[in-house]
Design a binder for these strands. Structure first.
Length: 625
RNA sequence: GCGGGCGUAGCUCAAUUGGAUAGAGCACCUGACUACGGAUCAGGAGGUUAGGGGUUCGACUCCCUUCGCCCGUGCCA
């Protein structure tokens, strides 16, 4: 069942109903046809248009133009639009509609409430958004930027549309890699080379990398050396390496067993690693104004105790089968995704994989939390993996909602990579990945510089706050404003520009409107405008009014496609339309009080929509800059 | 090999899910206003939407095909 956002005050919806009625009257055989109402791209054509006639033509066996004429002849829009005649039919059969001025005013009046025309979704859904996946003992880098930024924006959009959201940070806090670090840390701490009490994430990151390499056994190299009869010295060196790595590897496995058994000392170190990692993670989220807290964490460790029973369940019910010693779920059937590669859920050695945990997570999210929709804000490269996990959950029945008995809608909100200005993956000059906290700090520093240049008078404390807002706006908007599935090119200069489709520009547009009200107060203009009737007579006023009314549809389109850039584009267009209005329609200079007040109301609405839209994107609003 | 994604102006990106003359910003050129925040507005130039074919009244969008780049592809996560 498609969700509904019925709103009798939205001209698009009113026109859709009228056109639908006219179509049903003239072409009963096509009564279900979509009226296809959309705002006109150019004002010369009209305010709104219906594109239904062309599509209807072949269904009813008439020429498109005749269909349009029939619709125009039967429609009743006298109360909302200017009379429709054949003169309103253009091209192959577009029907152009011009709103009656009083209808526009009425729509504006109805729009001017706290909800800004956004009616709650019906039915509202319970949605889980998977928007982060940090790993213990690993420093966060640019690769961790997009997931929370996009996921949080999607969560906010859906919340604004009336849904209930649960965010999930799927923390990589379990398994052999973690055990390797812990084994190394315990050894290093015992030798007095590190202090676990004062350890930093950078140190943990280093330990992680060293643990990885010391457990890396070069079996292939040894094999090759033997086969090609290399010198005894070379073979001996390789044997030594392999022996050392094997020792480290076995120690890690022992550590994993102790960890699973909740051995106090081992678990204590694990907890320490978790605390250090998660503190940085949550700090980054706070800096980015991403709404993720400790309560949203669901580590792999929390699924670990459930895996064995779940896998048994899959085996006994015949969902999974043994293949080459491993346990797999086959997904060739189209209802499971029609995927050739099976989903591996248990290795030959009995170990579980990340797919196992991910299937388990779906089970918990649907069966325990009651998720009706699960959205994964994850790198596009994980697409196959996610489709496998979705398919396996469906096959296992875990994705079937316990109350509605409908399968949860599972979607991959895939995104591309962050590239440098050379078009290659974003790295430092020395070729290392950029620490996320460094990236954020540099953004703030550059934003502070830009703010200082633009407005040197700001007091230091406020300047820092504003710089952070501008920095967050720049960083997140750059990430959100382009089609998420594509890679995007990271550029401090471009994202921090005050011109063009950028976060700082939208903040500027907002503070510019706010300053009008400060100026009005200075001039002793009271708040009479709040009760003055709306008006939109000048062309620029009318265009602004029409643009404002498009806000709910822009939000809905964003929520439907899970594409925040749609909202960004709308806000940017709104800012542009407002600029034109601001240029052409003096607000405080106009002699007439009624005009001044109705224009103040338009300014007020524009500010409200901009602020609301920015907050939905996770960008903080400010009063001045 | 197979599967997926991407390819739009010199550069960075859009295009309301198949609709009217493919739009913005930057850069370039020309104008406006002693400017309710000039971090502005108006205008110009810039395109065979990678190439070819097809479906359609209509294709950047859907189908086929070729080229180029990226990614994934059974025992890492």
């Amino acid at each position: 069942m498609p969700e509904s956002h019925a709103n009798v005050d939205d001209p698009v919806q009113v026109l859709a109903a009228r056109f639908a009625a006219a179509i049903a009257k003239v072409f009963p055989q096509a009564a279900d046809a979509d009226p296809l109402i959309t705002p006109c791209k150019t004002p010369e054509h009209g305010d709104f248009q219906s594109n239904a006639a062309m599509g209807l033509a072949k269904r009813v066996g008439k020429k498109p133009r005749e269909v349009a004429e029939a619709i125009v002849g039967a429609i009743d829009v006298a109360d909302i639009a200017e009379p429709l005649t054949v003169a309103n039919i253009a091209g192959p059969g577009f029907i152009n509609v011009r709103l009656r001025p009083d209808a526009l005013i009425a729509a504006l009046q109805a729009f001017d409430t706290a909800s800004l025309g956004v009616t709650p979704a019906s039915p509202a859904q319970f949605v889980v958004v998977d928007l982060m996946g940090v790993n213990l003992a690993k420093q966060m880098h640019v690769g961790h930027l997009r997931s929370p930024v996009i996921g949080d924006a999607i969560a906010r959009v859906l919340t604004r549309l009336g849904h209930t959201i649960k965010r999930q940070n799927h923390v990589g806090d379990w398994g052999l890699p973690i055990a390797m670090v812990i084994a190394r840390l315990m050894r290093e701490a015992a030798a007095g080379r590190i202090s676990l009490d004062h350890i930093t994430l950078d140190q943990l990151d280093e330990a992680y990398r060293k643990a990885q390499s010391e457990c890396q056994r070069d079996m292939a190299g040894l094999e090759a050396a033997r086969r090609f009869g290399m010198g005894p010295k070379a073979i001996a060196e390789l044997e030594e390496q392999v022996a050392g790595a094997t020792e480290a590897f076995l120690a890690a496995r022992q550590t994993l067993i102790k960890l699973q058994a909740m051995d106090p000392e081992t678990h204590g170190v694990w907890k320490r690693v978790q605390d250090v990692t998660m503190k940085v993670c949550i700090d980054v989220c706070r800096q980015l104004r991403v709404n993720v807290t400790d309560a949203d964490s669901a580590g792999e460790s929390s699924y670990a105790p459930e895996l064995a029973a779940m896998v048994d369940d899959l085996v006994t019910r015949g969902v999974a089968e043994v293949s080459d010693g491993a346990l797999v779920v086959r997904l060739e059937d189209p209802q499971y995704g029609g995927i050739k590669e099976p989903c591996l859920i248990r290795k030959t050695d009995g170990g579980y994989l990340y797919a196992t945990t991910d299937v388990c997570a779906i089970r918990r999210r649907v069966q325990k939390f009651g998720a009706e929709r699960i959205i994964y804000s994850i790198d596009a490269r994980q697409n196959l993996h996610l489709r496998q996990v979705f398919g396996a959950s469906i096959k296992a029945g875990y994705a079937i909602h316990p109350r509605t008995h409908a399968p949860a809608r599972m979607e991959h909100a895939a995104f591309g990579s962050v590239m440098g200005e050379d078009g290659k993956p974003f790295k430092t000059r020395s070729g290392e990945s950029v620490k996320l906290s460094d990236l954020i700090e540099e953004t703030f520093t550059r934003a502070a510089e830009a703010v200082r240049k633009g407005n040197p008078e700001l007091p230091a404390g406020e300047a820092r706050e504003i710089a952070e807002a501008v920095g967050v706006a720049a960083l997140k908007y750059a990430d959100l404003s382009t089609d998420r599935v594509k890679d995007y090119i990271f550029s401090f200069d471009r994202m921090l520009a005050f011109e063009g489709n950028t976060g700082p520009y939208l903040l500027y547009a907002l503070v510019r409107i706010k300053s009008i009200f400060r100026k009005a107060a200075e001039r002793g203009v009271g708040e009479t405008w709040k009760t003055t009737p709306h008006a939109a007579t000048a062309p620029a006023e009318k265009q602004l009014a029409l643009a404002l009314l498009r806000y709910p549809a822009a939000l809905r389109a964003t929520g439907e496609a899970l594409e925040p850039h749609r909202l960004c584009t709308y806000l940017y267009e709104l800012a542009g339309v407002f600029s034109t209005f601001f240029e052409q329609c003096p607000v405080l200079k106009d002699g007439h009080e009624a005009t001044r007040d109705s224009r103040l109301r338009l300014c007020d609405l524009a500010a409200k929509v901009l602020a609301d839209g920015l907050s939905v994107l996770g960008i903080p609003a400010i009063e001045r800059m």
